[in-house]
């Protein structure tokens, strides 16, 4: 598999769609081990109309969701028939730290590494950064259907 995925390939792997597809491109991929994804944050994002008027800050929950989506690409990219219209995973627990706000106009780089995975459970360490500066990091625990 090519180690770079465009948005069409991402949509073959993930069930999320507008306005909830939160990664634009995969720039590095080692199936079930590591993924690096990019999210271009536009002022046209729906959440900016309310979060917050006059001060467009990307909600932390959306950054976590982007980390989750990148992680799922990492786990499902090796699957031949991964095209799914239903989620094959659920987030079970997480610890997160938000260190710098993500604003409209930023390009967010999301890196996720699988720390531990077993048949139906996985632990992922993820980080979101903007221009090399850390914005958030999280440890995520998933249940998977592989």
């Amino acid at each position: 598999m090519d180690n770079v995925l465009d948005i069409e390939k991402i949509q073959e792997l993930l069930p999320q769609r507008f306005p909830f597809l939160l990664i634009d491109r995969i720039v590095e991929l080692a199936p079930a081990q590591k993924v690096v994804a990019v999210k271009n944050v536009s002022i046209n994002e729906g959440f900016f109309s309310g979060h917050f008027p006059g001060r467009p800050v990307m909600p932390g929950a959306m950054l976590i969701e982007a980390m989750i989506q990148a992680s799922m690409v990492m786990f499902y990219s090796g699957q031949v028939s991964a095209a799914c219209r239903k989620p094959l995973y659920s987030l079970s627990s997480m610890k997160a730290k938000f260190v710098h706000p993500v604003l409209a106009g930023n390009q967010v780089r999301i890196t996720a590494n699988a720390i531990k995975s077993e048949s139906s459970v996985a632990i992922v360490a993820a980080e979101a950064s903007v221009e090399g500066k850390e914005a958030a990091r999280a440890e995520l625990i998933f249940r998977l259907e592989l």
Binding site: S93, S117, S120, V121, I141, R143
Partner: peptide
């Protein structure tokens, strides 16, 4: 199983 993996990690 999830907690078990978490304990291991």
């Amino acid at each position: 199983s999830m907690m078990a993996l978490e304990i291991l990690a």
